[in-house]
Amino acid sequence: MQQENRRIILFTGHFGSGKTELAINYSIKLTRQGQAVTVVDLDIVNPFFRSSEVRDVLEKEGIRLLSPNFVGTTVDVPSLPPEIYSVFQSKNSKVIFDVGGDDIGATALGRYYPYFMQEPYRMFFVINARRPLSSTPEQIIEMLKAIESHSRLKVTDLINNTNLMYETNLNHLLEGQEIVEQVSEKLNIPIAYISGVAEVIEQLPEQYNKKGFPIDIYLHPPWDREDEV
């Protein structure tokens, strides 16, 4: 993983692109480098499969997690707690924003706009080219622009996270890479990482070695949870 100089890090993208898994993995890696890390679950779109479900895992790592009010309950209200403002006040912790999918999810960033203007941020745009509606450069660019417009922020880095979950192989990732490279060229935004499970990332050709970002999978459906079966 590359050196992370910026304090505020945002994960955005099409819903289902893998933002949450990446945000979890990124925060754990930063913590293990000795950084204090706070994760903000800012997802106002998804009712489940979200970072707040792995509160135990994050807290065990020493990561502070801020979740929307009523998360994991049956109250379907996208209400964000005032504690989130605290991450802009005390500057001793890196902050990872796990943003909800699409431009709808990115809208939640708008209210923090004045704070994002006060210090440099890194805004990742996560791409899974095996997702419908984000499988061509044109579709991806349309989505990226919409997210920028709704959040009033600029994407600084792309992540190629092309995958078919447990069926992913190296070809899927490399096909995705071609598409993400086209996006990168057209928009002049660098590709920071190529991510996937370790077995696939290990097979990346040498030219991509520095960009490989192996991840562990933390969100599982109930029939796949290891502690249960």
Partner: peptide, 14 residues
């Protein structure tokens, strides 16, 4: 070819 979809989206596309 295969795509990765949420159940709801897949039902709509189907």
């Amino acid at each position: 070819s295969k795509v990765l979809m949420k159940g709801n989206e897949a039902i709509a596309e189907a």
